[in-house]
Amino acid sequence: MTAQQTLWSLKAGERCEIIGYDTTLAEAYRIRLMEFGFHPGERVTCLQAPAFGAPKVYQVSATVFSLDDDVAAYVQVRLEPRDA
């Protein structure tokens, strides 16, 4: 069995589908993420994964957000093949 992949585990250029949220993520944060467009079923692309653990840059719909691990590590995803 492999570990659950999260938004934070994405590398630059990788694309995924959001499948849910970790149950320990505060509800207010979960709602805010959904308001930003990070819905279950939504496709997200990691545009930048800067060095030294800096927040990563994600594209969702037509908007670009930067998320740190304190949020991105709680968003559960399913990785899509590169040519999808």
Binding site: P55, T63, V64, F65, S66, L67, D68, D70, V71
Partner: peptide
């Protein structure tokens, strides 16, 4: 004081 996670619209 309320804290907010680092979610920044670029």
């Amino acid at each position: 004081y309320t804290d907010l996670p680092f979610v920044l619209e670029l």
